[in-house]
Amino acid sequence: MSPRRKPRQSAEPSFPDIAQLGEAIISTIQTAFRTPQRTPLEIIYNLKLTHFIGNEGHEGAEKWLNHMEKTFQVMQSRRNLSLDRWFETTTWFLGEHHASWWRQESYQLTPSEIMDWGVFKELFQKRFIPLAYIDHKKQEFTHLKQGKMSANEYYRMFTDLSRYDPEVAANSVKMLRRFSLGTKKKWGSIVTSTHCATYQEFYEILLRIEDSENMPSESENEEGKNGGQRRDDKGKGQAQDSEF
């Protein structure tokens, strides 16, 4: 009886699956270059937010609070800062004197109120942005006139001040009327002759009119060409005289 032969082994080396190998390589690269996740405090300090010292005045206090709130909104949308940590994060940027003010205020609040951003914002505004300042800004908005401002400058100031009168700001008809009343007299009739649903549409029309007014007329262009021709002719004459 002949001896049993061993099964023939392939001379070709065995390789791992190409797809698995590719996934392993990509995973290794991603691990090597993955940026370590930063804490909310590290992110905020990298944004270079300023501390609230207290000598910024009413307008400075308002700008500081609005800037902090906008920053937190962006961070929350990117899942870097939850709403219940807004208050805690803000207190890191209060100066020593105002941190003491907040501690005194917090003694009168419940634990849930202490963590409520709306409560902190209301108390901060009451302390550093008084109603007299808000009323002054509201009056400034009510009586705002374009004057020597460009259409763009007037639009930006009007939009910025409108937040002090939320009742008007929420009504497109009132905003259009208020905006048109403040424009230059020669433009005031546009709103009645042109259908505009919002003050933004009226502003776009003003921009086009302003641009057309700033463009040089055909007579000015022709005069400029003739003036240039006369200067050239004069220069040629002087050049010819200098040859003799």
Rank of each mutant, 00 (worst) to 15 (best):
residue 2 S to N: 13
residue 2 S to G: 11
residue 2 S to F: 09
residue 3 P to G: 12
residue 7 P to W: 05
residue 12 E to F: 09
residue 15 F to I: 09
residue 15 F to M: 07
residue 17 D to R: 03
residue 18 I to D: 12
residue 20 Q to M: 07
residue 21 L to G: 15
residue 23 E to D: 02
residue 25 I to P: 12
residue 28 T to H: 14
residue 39 T to G: 10
residue 42 E to I: 12
residue 47 L to M: 10
residue 49 L to K: 10
residue 53 I to V: 05
residue 58 H to I: 14
residue 58 H to K: 15
residue 61 A to T: 06
residue 66 N to E: 03
residue 67 H to I: 02
residue 67 H to N: 07
residue 71 T to G: 01
residue 80 N to I: 09
residue 82 S to V: 15
residue 91 T to I: 15
residue 93 F to I: 06
residue 96 E to L: 14
residue 101 W to Q: 14
residue 103 R to Y: 07
residue 110 T to D: 01
residue 110 T to C: 05
residue 110 T to E: 00
residue 121 K to Y: 06
residue 122 E to R: 13
residue 124 F to T: 09
residue 130 P to H: 15
residue 133 Y to K: 09
residue 143 H to R: 15
residue 145 K to L: 03
residue 149 M to C: 08
residue 152 N to S: 12
residue 154 Y to Q: 03
residue 156 R to K: 12
residue 157 M to T: 09
residue 162 S to E: 04
residue 162 S to W: 04
residue 163 R to Q: 00
residue 166 P to Q: 05
residue 167 E to M: 07
residue 171 N to V: 07
residue 177 R to P: 02
residue 182 G to Y: 00
residue 183 T to K: 08
residue 186 K to R: 01
residue 186 K to N: 01
residue 190 I to C: 00
residue 194 T to W: 00
residue 195 H to Y: 04
residue 196 C to E: 03
residue 196 C to H: 00
residue 196 C to Q: 01
residue 201 E to C: 04
residue 201 E to R: 08
residue 203 Y to K: 02
residue 204 E to R: 02
residue 205 I to L: 07
residue 212 S to V: 00
residue 223 E to A: 11
residue 223 E to S: 09
residue 225 K to W: 02
residue 231 R to N: 09
residue 232 D to H: 10
residue 234 K to Q: 11
residue 238 Q to D: 11
residue 243 E to S: 12
